[in-house]
Design a protein around this nucleic acid. Sequence first.
DNA 1: TGAAAATCAGGTATTAATACCTATTGTAAA
DNA 2: TTTACAATAGGTATTAATACCTGATTTTCA
Lengths: 225, 225
Amino acid sequence: MENKIKIILADDEQLFRKGIRFLLEKEECFDVIFEAENGQELIDFISTTEEFPDIILMDLKMPEVNGVEATKIIHKTHSDIRIIALTSYGGKSFITNMIDVGASSYLLKNTSPKTVVHTIQEVHDKGFYYDDEVMKTIHENLLSSSGKRIKCDLDKKLLSKREIEVLELICAQYTTSQIAEKLFISPRTVDGHRNNLLLKTQSKNVAGLVIYGIQKKLIEISPDF
Amino acid sequence: MENKIKIILADDEQLFRKGIRFLLEKEECFDVIFEAENGQELIDFISTTEEFPDIILMDLKMPEVNGVEATKIIHKTHSDIRIIALTSYGGKSFITNMIDVGASSYLLKNTSPKTVVHTIQEVHDKGFYYDDEVMKTIHENLLSSSGKRIKCDLDKKLLSKREIEVLELICAQYTTSQIAEKLFISPRTVDGHRNNLLLKTQSKNVAGLVIYGIQKKLIEISPDF
DNA sequence: TGAAAATCAGGTATTAATACCTATTGTAAA
DNA sequence: TTTACAATAGGTATTAATACCTGATTTTCA
């Protein structure tokens, strides 16, 4: 068969890539043409290659450029490439966010190989597909008030780049003056940013900012074992 | 060949399990006898089966019972079973922690299938094996050990009941005097508790305390969905 | 291009947090 | 019955955070 579905895997874990590559290549109709270990590598490949993929399996958590950003960029420039999010995180905001930036499907890593194969075929044929479990989450999200959605969208746009930088450093336990040094700006400016952060996130103090940062995944916290 | 190396996979991501299972079963000498999707399932299997594995590939982040706890328990009761940590977290504390509770090796998910195969064989033959990259981390840790060990011990010291109460209220964005009111104690006492918290958790300020609380799950944060 | 937003930065207060002290009491374990 | 530690609380400083002003550039975008 000539018309194999051309697939790219984007995931920072080599072992996972190799594993799923084997699972996919058991199928006659799939051809894994490239593996990227981060978003930048993926974008670089797409922008230089002459062999475009039909499908990209995209992890969200990747160094350099994450899955959401990569999806956003690739979807803008190559809207014919279908992107399937493939991640271990099943939070509503991630699902809706990924779909928002152009993903055609959303798979949890804790699904069966069969489901992955089926999803790829469906996405290739119809342009989209959602697993029952993911569909349920989407459904719940639609149910839970259109009011919250607007708030959610506002929330995301709320913080500026600089504010996020400051927030990250606050969460890293730096003081105002230390942050000022690191960003090469006046402590006063940092003060202003922190103030805006408190206002925008409706927090009372740094404790609130840290919680906000973690909730919004602006800050990564290493899990405790 | 009769003497295949019997392997158990413990990981919460089904896709990852299936993928690595294929990679391993390409090797003649490996036999994957069981897959567990969390620590409890693994412990249950070990304690009821009559077919013991030679090797367990153990993820750290798992629901119910995590990889560290599972390793601790299994190593105590079945010290002949070799446990290889297989995770995406490469932090020093994770590595030394796992070795401390009985792991024979530590692999990052971002390694090649070849390395995994080699590690399993080495661990089965010699009882231990460390990849160059991991060895480097261990080496670095040993270099800077004597001073930090004490800190590690402090880290393990539990917080008292009262301290946890105070920590919760700090995370809830209350000020010292507000906390004092709520607990019917003097602000000074709260001050002392907060100070002890900073010492015990090795934090610089409330930001550190909040992160500690969330990491240790002393504080629940409602996800942003 | 013109308006809106982001970024920068200064002044002046007040309040809160943090760093060192010391010391009493009760309780639980060795 | 010592020992240890948790919980209590006071004193005295210093530093950091927060509140409320103001205004000047630069960027972005419709």
